[in-house]
Amino acid sequence: MHNALEVNNLKKHYIQKKVVKKDGKTTSKQLVKAVDGVSFTLKQGEILGVIGESGCGKSTLGRLLISLEKPTEGDITLNGTDVHALLKQDRLKYRRMSQIIFQNPFDTFDPRHTVKKIMMSVLKLHHIGESEEEQLKICCDTLNEAGLQPAENYLDRYPFELSGGQLQRISILRSMLLNPIFLVADEPISMLDVSIRADIIRMLQQLTKEHNTAMVFISHDIATTRYISDRVAVMYLGKIVEIGTTDDILHSPSHPYTQALISNCASLDPLEERDVIKLEGEPPTPIDTGPGCYFAPRCVHACERCFKEYPDVRTKKNGVKVACFLVNDESGLETEKEV
């Protein structure tokens, strides 16, 4: 059985033209490394949470994963087949295999089209259902099953007449109409009211389980990610610094960045005493990252070596992969050169 998704050394570099530097000089070209060598695998039906601060390349990664952008380097394998080859061979077939849910449900749909038109256009494009009546029935059934009842009430409405939660539900349903084996959810709940976030998460969980869909769940909300994910990847400046099962990462983080991130996560218990790790220094930019560890300038444990070379990925005994020199030095764990 193939892995649903294999990502190998994925890179996306943007070329920025005419940039004014701090000293007032302009350079003609600059490389922005939005995603810089990301590798991971995803089993069928598995949910991987991707967390990290704003601008670390989460959303770019999401768009790369479903080929809305072309990677500068690296390759993605979907169900054992190279995505590039799949796209060339049959674009529609590839799109049926991988889908995305966007952050802002209000901007996801053409404002001039009704829900019916939005859903039907997907079915028509992919020739799902034999007649128009059958397609309409599929739409109704899907809406009814998802709790948007009665479906007839929703079919003739326009996106602006619906709430964010309803729209996001429709967005998810529409993606799942194609029965994909891989789904990217790019911060699907960050624009929604807190009260309906749980519903949407539950719906995502339920649907991906039913269809055995693998999902990359991009978020900056650690609590939600913990709730939904089987595994978690922590991103910093276009690289995955730590990846492993949700429990391992959140309970015993190894990378200093993950530690800082999790220590800053709000707790429900106000009496709980915790040491909040404050990060010093400027927020990172993915330009001129230098040879060393990207996190080194802000890292409390940084040593001389950290500034000279980027740490290789080490695998801990529990399977967590970390890119940090400290892991080896402190716990004497085995080192693994390859990714």
Binding site: R63, I66, L68, R91, L92, Y94, R95, R96, Q99, I100, F102, N104, D107, T108, F109, D110, P111, S121, V122, L125, H126, S171, R174, L178
Partner: peptide
């Protein structure tokens, strides 16, 4: 540059 154009691309429309 609207998001929904991206959505349409994701559904596989030409």
């Amino acid at each position: 540059s609207e998001d929904f154009i991206m959505t349409l691309r994701a559904t596989g429309m030409s």
